[in-house]
Computed example of a mutant assay.
Amino acid sequence: MRAFFAAPAVLWDDWAPAMRAACPELDLQREGDPQGFDAVLYAPGYPEDGSAMDFAPFTSARIVQSLWAGVERIVGNATLTQPLCRMVDPGLAQGMVEYCTGWALRAHLGMDRYAQDGVWRNEIVPPLAAERSVVVLGTGELGAAVARALAGLGFRVTGWSASGRPVEGIAVLGGERLDAALGRAEILISLLPDTPGTRGLLDARTLSLLPRGAVLINPGRGTLVVEDDLLAALDAGRLGHAVLDVFRTEPLPPAHPFWAHPGVTVTPHVAAETRPSTAATVVADNLRRAMAGEALRYLVDRARGY
């Protein structure tokens, strides 16, 4: 089995040994005749000259396996006719759970209220988690994991997705009930994918539905947020704070108003990362399935975009 490593060169030293350990029968290469490869492992940033990858020459490839959870950068590539699978990695999910629970707890407990200035503020007592409503937008693998973790801490958790697909132990609203979900979101966490239906979803109208003082945590996709509307909601005091890990332009330009706004915390797209040590077994399983003609895991629905 031969696979082409269509990823930035900086990733090779981590992925090559991980894949050799997880899939000893795999011959992983960074160059060669495209027609001689059974699979393509893809990560954004390839080709490194900034051009779009041409998948057409890989006529023997039975699978294109994304090494990232998001596939929005290639799902619309007209040359990509091979089956495309997104990454669902236990390590990535755990990283996202830790990021979201950490920032949700910080917001819930009001940690930033306790300035280290010698003033004794013991009149500020945070509520218990059971008194706080959290809404998770997007209840796929990552969103469901985050929702279950927060529910395990005692928060009143509601999920929302376009399909309304059930998540065990979590109340999930679907489709047309987005406004109802937003209306109860004292803490709103967005893990929605980047699709035509989600772009600009959080605009002036939808942000106005949040309870006054709500906190937004967005480690999903930057395209979800209308940036000027978010800043206006913060300036008006309707929104209490925004923790943003993803942006329409990355890296976030130094002059962008998010950096200096007191109501915004910027993190540099670090919420969750694919870790070769855990993801290699996922890739190996899908490569073996492709070679055996079996059903692939996490196959992307091109019409939905994820």
Rank of each mutant, 00 (worst) to 15 (best):
M1S: 14
R2D: 05
A3K: 02
F5L: 14
W12I: 10
P17C: 05
E31F: 12
D33A: 13
F37Y: 03
V40H: 07
V40N: 07
A43F: 14
G45S: 13
G45M: 13
P47R: 14
G50E: 09
S51P: 06
S51D: 11
A56K: 08
I63A: 01
Q65D: 06
W68R: 08
A69E: 00
G70S: 07
G70A: 11
V71I: 12
T81C: 11
T81H: 14
Q82V: 08
P83W: 05
C85S: 10
D89A: 09
Q94G: 10
C100R: 02
G102Q: 09
W103D: 02
R106C: 04
H108R: 02
D112G: 05
R113D: 15
A115Y: 15
V119T: 11
N122H: 14
N122P: 03
E123C: 13
E123N: 13
P126Y: 04
L128M: 13
S133Q: 13
V135R: 00
V136S: 01
V136H: 02
G140T: 02
L142F: 14
G143S: 05
A145I: 07
V146E: 10
V146H: 06
R148V: 07
G152F: 12
R156S: 12
W160Y: 06
S161M: 06
A162T: 09
S163A: 09
G164Q: 10
V172D: 03
G174L: 05
G183T: 14
L191S: 00
L192W: 01
L192N: 01
D194R: 14
D203M: 01
R205Y: 11
V226A: 08
A233R: 03
D235W: 09
A236V: 09
H241L: 02
H241G: 00
R248D: 08
E250G: 04
P251K: 15
P253M: 09
P254Y: 11
P254A: 15
P254F: 11
F258R: 03
V270W: 14
A271T: 10
T274S: 10
R275S: 04
P276C: 07
A280S: 04
T281R: 07
V283E: 01
D285N: 05
R288F: 06
R289H: 10
M291S: 15
R297F: 12
D301C: 11
R302M: 07
Y306L: 08
